[in-house]
Design a protein around this nucleic acid. Structure first.
Lengths: 164, 164
DNA sequence: ATTGTCAAGTTCCAATTGGAACGATTTCTG
DNA sequence: CAGAAATCGTTCCAATTGGAACTTGACAAT
């Protein structure tokens, strides 16, 4: 087989392979929802595997750190409510983060059921790392858009998220 | 406790509860990615449980039907490539759909490894049902946007999805 | 023809998941 | 104040998941 033939066949294969992918993005029922989920899945697919492997921080653990970065001292229950994640997996994530020394867990003296969580310096260090990875992935994601378009996208998503 | 007090306390509780949720949406690092994933999760969370319970169609099965609705006769491998879903779970979904009589699976005479899939009339019927559910959910999702804004959102997501 | 490589689909299995029940604590109600 | 109801976090366990190995088939190179 000549090089040219090889190239042509590879291109054809690549096109056939991408064909359904692009057809779905272009014409599937639920186009908007499909595109939204497609992009969201692509985002996390690339990210969490690498993150866990390089830093040992799982998806649930990252969510916890992200929440603490916004409101240090919040509880697992509040995180569960805010992110719609099952509280038992958050419980596991909290324990792992605590074991790794990335967060500190205390008991609310007013209400001993509540256990406010706080990032330790080690937690802040690791969060800086994983945030950088995630931000890089976000930048890749938005690379096809201009700054104005990206801002608009974010605004529209925010509007939807408010009561959804 | 008076009714008014009850209402006020409930509102306060609801606000405290939503506080972190809204704070995350407003100020978390990775705002755009966070909002995107939040909306995508909210979309599927409500949908797939109800869908499976009411029609017996799982998420993976829905994906297969959705692909067949765009390209009848495509194979499990093509679906896996197009949707980035592991092929073993698609294999299971295909078997279940076939067992339920919703799809027909043949063997490509040219290449006996390939098994083109086709919706049966029963499959088309059930797909009409689940598509209606999903479209209703999509409509809920987009309810906060005008038609123009929704179209713009879809366009921006499509642009991102093209090479991401 | 034979051998090696690759692709489609399946199966195996270890790990993860999340719903449900639980124990401990607080809050509500009568 | 006593009992009921609700809340926070944990544990249990059945089911799902997806990576990796496997089977079968196609095809290129020799």
């Amino acid at each position: 087989m000549t090089d040219l033939e090889t190239v042509l066949l590879e291109r054809e294969a690549a096109e056939a392979e991408e064909d359904l992918r692009l057809a779905m993005l272009a014409r599937s029922p639920l186009v908007t929802a499909y595109r939204l989920n497609y992009v969201a899945n692509s985002f996390v697919a690339g990210l969490y595997g690498k993150m866990e492997e390089e830093t040992g921080i799982s998806r649930a653990q990252f969510v916890v750190l992200l929440c603490l970065s916004v409101r240090d001292g919040c509880t697992a229950q509040e995180i569960a409510d805010a992110t719609h994640r099952p509280k038992n997996s958050l419980s596991r994530a909290v324990r792992a983060l605590e074991a790794a020394g990335h967060i500190h867990r205390s008991t609310d003296v007013r209400d001993q059921r509540r256990q406010p969580l706080q990032m330790t310096p080690s937690g802040r260090r690791i969060f800086t790392q994983v945030r950088a990875q995630a931000e890089a992935r976000e930048a890749e994601m938005l690379a096809s858009l201009s700054a104005e378009e990206a801002a608009l996208l974010s605004k529209l998503l925010n509007r939807i998220a408010q009561d959804f």
